[in-house]
């Protein structure tokens, strides 16, 4: 049945996914196992996105389904302990209030079993620094749709350097007009054209971090 759940989520069959989750819970299946099946479904969604079979709207729909599954599993997961693959701090930078792209990335990171500290929009550099200190996260994602955001990204990188955190924090940026040139100007480590790229970067960095 859990294989069917993986497939149903990958096919974005909302009603079917929720039906299976309820059935599994009724049968006494561990909520953590159900969650992991859904995470596999989300991984398949990500793969289809990368192969141009799925598009942003499909990512959003999968995120919506995953969120609902989370609500159904919330109670049962309280006592379960799943070891997170790492922590990512993320936010839309100061002066920019766009959150659509950031929210898609947050959903995809969460479904990839990462802890995400989402600081929201219009986040000043100092708040990014504080969050990195508080969470001890080693990955930061900065989002921005406006070119004005690039200046804020640059200022945030400087603030992280001044706080002495740059050596342990990998920084990725994303958002409509971001590209390699912008990444260089801003001083980030890398950039992503889409949510799946963000997941890939974060996992790569966190895997490497875990090995060192």
């Amino acid at each position: 049945m859990l294989e069917q759940l993986v497939k149903a989520l990958a096919e974005l069959e909302e009603d079917r996914v929720l039906e299976i989750v309820r059935q599994e819970l009724d049968c006494g299946t561990e909520p953590l196992s159900i969650l992991q099946a859904c995470q596999r479904g989300m991984t398949e969604v990500g793969s289809r996105f990368e192969s141009n079979e799925y598009f942003v709207s499909d990512l959003m729909m999968s995120g919506e389904i995953f969120k609902q599954v989370g609500v159904l599993l919330e109670e049962g997961l309280k006592s379960a302990s799943q070891v997170s693959s790492g922590t990512v701090v993320i936010g839309t930078v100061a002066g920019d209030i766009h959150d659509i792209g950031k929210d898609i990335v947050v959903n995809m990171l969460k479904s990839a079993n990462l802890d995400v500290t989402d600081l929201g929009v219009d986040v000043p550099p100092a708040r990014f620094v504080t969050a990195l200190q508080e969470t001890n996260a080693s990955v930061l994602g900065m989002s921005g749709l406006l070119t004005l955001a690039f200046d804020s990204m640059k200022e945030t990188v400087v603030a992280i350097e001044e706080a002495g955190l740059r050596g342990r924090v990998h920084i990725m940026i994303g958002g409509g007009p971001v590209n390699g040139d912008v990444c260089e100007v801003v001083g980030a480590d890398s950039w992503g054209a889409d949510a799946q790229a963000a997941v890939r970067l974060a996992k790569t960095w966190l895997d490497v971090g875990a090995q060192t």
Partner: peptide
């Protein structure tokens, strides 16, 4: 001519 290029180029 892309916005990012007009900013970063």
């Amino acid at each position: 001519v892309p916005a990012a290029l007009l900013y970063a180029g």
